[in-house]
Design a protein around this nucleic acid. Structure first.
Lengths: 196, 196
DNA sequence: GATTATAATCAACACAGTGTTCATTAAGCA
DNA sequence: TGCTTAATGAACACTGTGTTGATTATAATC
């Protein structure tokens, strides 16, 4: 499953070119030609690897989401109610997640902060939700009336905080961010606004 | 300030054409030619009113945001802490908002659910935040450490619920939605998940 | 280190869509 | 009704697309 060195090199060049371009103009205004000029590769080479610029973006996204899901499923093994009883475990896990986000911050910034593709937000929310469902007990009977709305609320809120974190230069360290996310979800936002 | 009937007619045709097209393919894949074919107008006519398809989208967005802001500023006059003490007033106001969203649901659906432009989410969150800041007392001293993150949390969460509402055919009536948004923000999502 | 496989390049292609023009036709306005 | 201006249709040069076939360059394999 190893890749030819040349392939690795051009794919890397293409990604970095895209990252640079996305700072200058909207993804919608970026052409395949732009990307190839910036990456200093032949345009034909681009089409050897991707069908178009959307395909390129799609593959970047899928890779990030796959990695996130891998972290989540291999490291977050206990059920959700056990986790809320053991906030330390939860915090350790959340920290690990934020470290990955920090590591791939350039790409996440492009996808979540720059005006690139709205669907990534939704896919990320989907991942969070899938994970919450995976961790909740199946026999979690009565539940509130509009669970789906609460889900939409929580997942969007988390992605929103992530976006804010990335947009503001990730000044808060991963550990603190993780704690903040956990706390605000447990207490609710209003309680956070007034007192500590 | 009246518009020529012909102008009104073509602008309407263009909007409806866009709404129809957006159901079939991504905005990125829709061309000005597509829109004109669908609207049954000459392509030159399109350029009489908009510089390109992005300009068209931008004008639709601005109009909706302006209207939202108008509702918010003219109807929501009391300060936020007064409002939380009078949940009825808050509910009446939120209901009015949701009625407007319901009325223009096609456009909001396009902008928030269909894969069109990620920036609208942010602009909407910006509007919500601007309004919250407008309503909060200036001397609201100590406040929690990371107010900005709580803001990002709340605004994203609200837009997320909106998105879900639109995506699911707006089955919940505006009144109930308004109540749900208010309640979940006051109690926090976790309390909503377990019991009522 | 020579051989082999294949990635990258280059030039060329037809094609789709853009944004603008100008003369002509049609529709709203007063 | 006549005046004004919006909409049309055809043409324009131009940018970018996606694909091709032949050629060169560079990893991988022996």
């Amino acid at each position: 499953m190893k890749q030819d060195l040349r392939v690795k090199k051009t794919k890397k060049a293409i990604r970095h070119a895209l990252l640079r371009l996305v700072d200058k103009k909207t993804f919608a205004r970026i052409s395949v030609s732009d990307i190839c000029d910036e990456a200093e590769i032949n345009r034909g080479t681009f089409y050897l690897h991707y069908t178009d610029k959307f395909d390129l973006l799609e593959k970047i996204q899928q890779e990030l989401l796959d990695h996130l899901w891998m972290i989540v499923t291999t490291r977050m093994t206990e059920k959700i109610n056990v986790l809320t009883e053991k906030p330390d475990t939860l915090k350790i896990f959340a920290t690990e997640l934020f470290h990955y986000l920090d590591q791939e911050a350039d790409l996440f910034y492009m996808l979540l902060v720059n005006t690139v593709d709205p669907s990534f937000h939704n896919r990320l929310k989907g991942l969070i939700q899938k994970n919450m469902e995976r961790l909740s007990h199946p026999a979690e009977e009565p539940v509130s009336f509009h669970v789906d709305y609460v889900m939409a609320y929580v997942t969007s809120a988390i992605v929103g905080m992530l976006q804010h974190w990335l947009a503001n230069g990730r000044k808060i360290p991963p550990e603190e961010m993780a704690l903040l996310v956990v706390k605000i979800n447990l207490n609710g936002p209003m309680k956070m606004m007034s007192g500590e």
